[in-house]
Design a protein around this nucleic acid. Sequence first.
DNA 1: AACTCGGGGCC
DNA 2: GGCCCAGAGTT
Length: 360
Amino acid sequence: MKEKRPILIDAPRVGRSIEPLCGWYQKHARKLPWRQTNDSYAIWVSEVMLQQTRVEAVIPYYERFMTALPTIEALAEVDDDVLLKLWEGLGYYSRARNLKKAAQICAVQYGGRLPGSYTELLKLPGFGPYTAGAVASIAWNLPVPAVDGNVMRVISRITALEHDIKDPATVRAVRELLCGVIEASEPGILNQALMELGACICVPNGAPRCHECPVSAHCAARENGQTELFPVKAPKKQRRIEEKTVIVVCVDDGVLLCKRESKGLLANLYSFLCEDGHLTKETVIDICKQHGITVESVSEMKPAKHIFTHIEWHMIGYLVQGTGKTLPYENDIIAARHQIRTAYSIPRAFASYQKEIGLL
DNA sequence: AACTCGGGGCC
DNA sequence: GGCCCAGAGTT
């Protein structure tokens, strides 16, 4: 049984930290692309990309995305495959789908702009408490918190918070605490300063760089020599293992691709034939026939492993040479190699097999 | 409250 | 190999 305790946070320490923190931010903030604009759409796109994704990974995606889709109207009208191709490799692809959905709502209901309050933002798909708070505070300087993993870690250390920072109740408590102090500051600066400190100084893995920290004098974990004890994290959950058989079918100059289902893992992305279980060569030939392929030869490919957050795929692969004129499944296509590179979004799980046939 | 949903860069 | 990242949606 998990003990339930009231969540008490040392608010005065947070209050004392704000001034030095914001001062530090204005001197030391990294010059990131989305910090060079006041465009709420650009800030929105960046915040969605940054969900569960590191800054360095986002930068090239962000630049490419904003060039291709510079306005909400452009996003609202973009073809789904083009959108997914822009997102290919970023992961959590429902973020892209919700981004477009929300853009369409903005186009129809709000005259092509984001609605201008935290509460209205929160109603849009893809906007949770963090993203709504981030856009409202950074783009419009509205006094609402934006609590992400960085902020939780920073507050956890400053206040020596004994509760699991992943627990939604703890996140709510931190959000409410910040609601009480954010009025007395520049909301956009404060929120970004908390995140910047978490990303650059009060780091997640490895020792925090307390000697460079503008708040070290106010930090409870630092005072007690307990920076390693915070943040408190819940025990990890276990991943399940799934066996898969990847079948790469080459037909003339093309490769067989299958559009994945519209729900679930890697929804709407393209892949090679991918079946449950580790199948034999004979079964593979049978499956190829079902897909309208006349098999000429089959060879084994390298086994591969791909790790998702909650699943581990153990893949074996077969390379099939064949011919096929009619494809009975409507989600199957024969794609030319250059099309695969430029038009079809293929998740990283299949990278090993893309490389093996020279497609990556 | 617990699960689902990607991928990569550190340690 | 594990960790966690400028989280949100579904059940």
